[in-house]
Design a protein around this nucleic acid. Structure first.
Lengths: 168, 168
DNA sequence: CTGAATTTTCAATAATTATTGAAAATTCAG
DNA sequence: CTGAATTTTCAATAATTATTGAAAATTCAG
């Protein structure tokens, strides 16, 4: 397999994997493309590399910037904007976690909070059981939230190292 | 808010959250329904509760069984099959992790393995850079894989407890 | 300022994914 | 075995999501 084939295969597979995680396939492909590219790329470069439209390229690049996975780079003396991806996979994973935590876990904890205050007599088994379920899920969510928070803050490698040491 | 409203709201929101994770909304709703249900439910019960067709109910219940999130229960003297969900959220999370690890992380590590053996002269910067990227991502994936493996095996509460203690 | 280069928006459309429901297959009480 | 009850399949269709590409908006060199 030569380098061009390998790159194509990686981009393709990264896209497929992404769809299983609820991420737009093209967005993942743009990400993959920038991940394995030495050079910063313009919207036109991305359009050409992935055979997608300008609107599509623009939209997905901006979405990747929202996730802090891609940065805009301006080349002096050039009107075009160029893009580059965060290459450190630990940071990539942490950024994704951080965004998902903010967008999904936080609202869920809020909802569970409300729902655990359901009206009605706690001696009614149905109500008791439901309130228990909510508390149960809430506790779990809060723990997950806490752990993600700690991991996100701990960006140093020593953390990753010690984490691995403990759990082999 | 009364108990019926609360249950409906929970099912609805759980479904919305799930779509962001690449999970079929109806599947998540069936899961939520069984999670907060005291009683075991038949396909007909699920159809009625969520206003979905028989085929849809059947398909999603079976998919949830593949994920080890739902079990079939047979009631003596009854032809119908009933279903019940795993209620322990720790186990729920571990089952989901285990399945995703098997279905997604494992194939990814395999792909990266192949791609890091890309042909060509390593003194060519493009090839060198690509091989480095692959190794980088592979190392990260293997670490993630290892950690998930350890977490899945450690089903006891002491683990969860000590995990929290270490990282506050 | 001007206007060409570039980016962004968004309605129309294409592609993908989920759902229905009837037919086929299976199960099991009698 | 039989046949009614139940589960499963799957082609047709509905619903959702992604993409296009041209028009509008923005940017900035001169």
């Amino acid at each position: 397999m030569n380098i061009t084939e390998a790159k194509q295969k990686f981009i393709e597979q990264w896209g497929i994997l992404a769809t299983q995680w609820g991420i737009n396939r093209t967005m993942a492909q743009v990400h993959a493309l920038l991940l394995i590219s030495d050079k910063n790329m313009s919207t036109d470069d991305i359009m050409a590399a992935l055979s997608i439209s300008r609107g599509n390229a623009n939209m997905n690049v901006r979405e990747l910037m929202n996730w802090n996975l891609v940065r805009k780079v301006i080349a002096p003396g050039d009107r075009k904007e160029y893009f580059t991806a965060e290459k450190d996979m630990w940071k990539v994973a942490m950024n994704i976690m951080e965004q998902r935590k903010k967008r999904e876990l936080d609202p869920m904890v809020k909802l569970l909070d409300e729902l655990s205050k359901v009206e009605g007599d706690k001696r009614n088994p149905e109500i008791k059981s439901f309130a228990d379920s909510m508390n149960n899920i809430k506790k779990f969510s809060e723990q997950a939230d806490k752990i993600m928070g700690v991991m996100i803050k701990a960006e140093e490698n020593w953390f990753w190292g010690s984490f691995l040491k403990i759990f082999k």
